[in-house]
Amino acid sequence: MPSLGTWLAAFFTLCMLSFLYKDNPFFRIAESFFAGLSLGYYIGIVANQTLKPNLVLPLADNFSANWHLLFAGGLGVMLYFRYIKRVAWVSRWALAVYVGYYVGVNMMQKLHGEVLPQVGDTMLSLSWSGIGTLWNVVMVVGVLSVLIYFYFSAEHKGAVGGISRVGIWFLMVSFGAAFGYTVMGRISLLIGRMVFLVNEWARPLIGLIT
């Protein structure tokens, strides 16, 4: 006999799948449960796995060595001031620190981790050294033509128009690959739910009945 947890999971899975027939109250209920549970889980996990070991326990165990953590904790608390109208401006200070930190991190990350390595990887040798050179040509032509397609300071006519049309073909191929992968991903999720329904819910149930 499937456990209560399995029954609940099966019920909510079927509720979600019922949307394929048409929108209905069971789907709405399951959707609301999912949103509520996700939020509750997130709050619990951040409190237990981040706030407790990284803030509360260090302050409680050795305050003099860890007092600087109060600044980080204080910034977090300041974010909630936005719910009090008179002092809502305080939250902007915390938000400014938060945004400033991530802008700084992302600027270096994008430059160092994406722009430079990717540009470097596109600087390929076009002198003939075997069949691999053809791929280098495809890569260089693809990158340049797509860049021209997104260059809007010149009208897409004549040579610019022709190159940008080549860019469209490269984009279409990449969209096709992305869409194919997306279909595969979505079917994988369906497989996961169906495996659960068949192996963990239906099979024990049928075994019980027969």
């Binding site: 390595p117 690959a177 992305a178 595969m184 994988s188």
Partner: peptide
Amino acid sequence: TAVSAPKYYAYLEAK
């Protein structure tokens, strides 16, 4: 996941 796999090929190609 498959949905995000295509963009990872750029990182793989760039070693």
